[in-house]
């Protein structure tokens, strides 16, 4: 049990810290957009890289957010029936519906991985005038899928614990405790 808790804690911490670091990327995007506007408008010298770098940053920023948001219970759902369920029923229902979650993430991992490998097979560069390497950014899709899957598995384990012991082990409880 302690080993399980340690692993769950590690997954939580991983997604948590990664998200906190990534969250600063909004400042980077802001500065990039602003500097591009200034260069173009004031100096009449737009860069070939400004817009694309902003775009690539945005891609990494949003795709890697999946696991972090799951860890904090931020993926929105319809809670109309759900809130009426008991803790145990919730856990059971979550275990059942997680099939769709795992199918989606699984495909994102396998086919996102395949997309990235394909790109790495010729060290793909962007076709733009700037031409940065694209493969590291495509690699973020399977990476994001792994982070999300890890968090999903952690949630599944917690649901199983809740179902068998009747004690709420969900990360929502954890969030409440941590923010209290």
């Amino acid at each position: 049990m302690r080993a399980i808790n340690a692993i769950l804690g590690f997954v939580d911490a991983l997604n948590d810290h990664l998200g906190r670091i990534l969250s600063y990327a909004v400042l980077l995007m802001f500065l990039l957009v602003l500097s591009e506007v200034i260069r173009r408008y004031i100096f009449n010298a737009p860069t070939v890289w400004g817009q694309e770098l902003t775009q690539l940053t945005f891609g990494v920023y949003v795709i890697l957010s999946g696991g972090h948001i799951l860890r904090w219970g931020g993926h929105v759902n319809v809670d109309i029936l759900y809130t009426k369920f008991s803790t145990r029923t919730k856990a059971l229902v979550d275990i059942i519906t997680s099939v769709l979650f795992f199918l989606f993430c699984g495909m994102l991992l396998i086919y996102g991985g395949s997309l990235a490998l394909d790109s790495m097979s010729y060290w793909e560069h962007s076709i733009s005038a700037w031409g940065p390497p694209l493969w590291p950014f495509k690699l973020m899709i399977p990476t994001a899928a792994v982070l999300l899957l890890l968090q999903g598995i952690a949630k599944l384990i917690r649901d199983i614990i809740t179902l068998t012991t009747g004690v709420d082990a969900s990360s929502q409880e954890l969030v409440k405790k941590e923010t209290a």
Partner: peptide, 14 residues
């Protein structure tokens, strides 16, 4: 874009 930049235009990709 590369070419137009090379002949002095301020070519941007939006």
């Amino acid at each position: 874009q590369k070419y137009l930049t090379s002949i002095g235009a301020a070519a941007t990709m939006i």
